[in-house]
Design a protein around this nucleic acid. Structure first.
Lengths: 201, 201
DNA sequence: GGTTGGGCGGGACAAATGTCACTGGGCGCG
DNA sequence: CGCGCCCAGTGACATTTGTCCCGCCCAACC
């Protein structure tokens, strides 16, 4: 019996997946959480063989949770399941020690199959997505550029960002300018969109 | 047997829901589509009793599809199922003749129950959401303000928007300014976020 | 028939934004 | 050690953006 932990914030999706996986006779959902911060505690309690993690969740992201799981529960295989096949997400998932990366676009049948393959030690990655991740390359943004861009993406002014990050306004402007340059865009909005699209935020 | 049409672009979600509804012994999924433009043709072919529509889809939105379904297939009850409980979405769903409005956050059990209740002529709406929709009020934006804001939301410059909408730059600026004023925000980015959050776009 | 309100545009102006050049400090690396 | 890179900041500057005037046309409505 394969013990699975399911982390997904959308109630209906989580319920449906749990029900679905429960129908497989070699799979058992031993824990369900809807918050990224609950992943590790729940895993320590339930000791799953496979952790199925969404990336976008309240609390910490599935990627962060994956990294912590690798350290705290090494035998547990992590399978990332996400809405967005962003190149940077895949890259970060691999760096966090994930064994598989599925997008929610695919057919449901893939899911149980992926769980079995991951448990067998195989890596499960959409080839097209892997190619995109390699061709896009790693993020060209430095840590601070990423921070500043992320902080400015919601419509905050330069002054807001400067205050939030304890930087001077000039510095913030410089980082934004350089991020805009590196993303090949024309302003902070496009830069943020681009970075988000590539999973660089 | 209740015949259901399922419109949802995310493959895994659609598959899971279809499987789930298929388990109910009085429900049968007679059509599945992943594109908003396919809803009406599929409905005309399959003649469902209930149409379960996502809002955000490729092609036309679930709200537009709902409006057309009401005209073309009046006996078919529309149930909107969406990720985002935006007040404006609910309002527009009601105007489009929907009988129910569910958010994907809720438990799966709600779904089958909602389908049966909608078919019985009941309205299914989350009370908290209804209250929010009423307290937020209808969109204060005029049609043009909405168009301009939507066109500017992706990082386009004023010149871009003016060219795309065949307006002068002054006009675009004026509309943006007035949209910013009406949303009580400080710039176009916040205005767009706010409008999107309320379902005004 | 007059008034109102929306669509459309112009001009002027202050503020925010993006760019550039230049200065340092720290840190890793050949 | 020198070199490059990232971090942090400064000052100046052109451009863009947001605001507040103003005007005209047209349709709806009292």
């Amino acid at each position: 019996m394969i013990k699975v932990l399911l982390a997904e914030d959308q109630g209906m999706m989580r319920g449906a997946l749990a029900l679905l996986l429960g129908l497989e006779d070699d799979i058992e959902v031993v824990a369900q959480v809807s918050d990224g911060d609950d992943v590790v505690p729940a895993a320590l309690r339930a000791r799953p063989d496979v952790a199925l993690l969404d990336i976008e969740m309240p609390g910490r992201s599935g990627l962060d949770a994956a990294a912590e799981l690798r350290d705290r529960l090494p035998h547990c295989r992590v399978l990332i399941l996400t809405t967005f096949g962003r190149p940077g997400y895949l890259r970060r998932a691999m760096e966090a020690g994930a064994y598989g990366f599925l997008v929610k676009d695919g057919p449901v049948e893939e899911l149980a199959a992926a769980i079995r393959r991951v448990l067998a030690g195989e890596r499960v990655i959409d080839p097209a997505l892997a190619a995109a991740a390699l061709s896009t390359g790693p993020s060209p943004l430095t840590d601070r550029e990423r921070d500043v861009l992320a902080a400015a993406a919601d419509g905050s002014t330069v002054a807001d960002v400067a205050a939030r990050l304890h930087l001077s306004e000039s510095t913030v402007r410089n980082y934004l300018s350089s991020a805009i340059g590196k993303t090949g865009t024309r302003n902070r909005i496009e830069a943020a969109r681009q970075a988000r699209h590539n999973g660089w935020l």
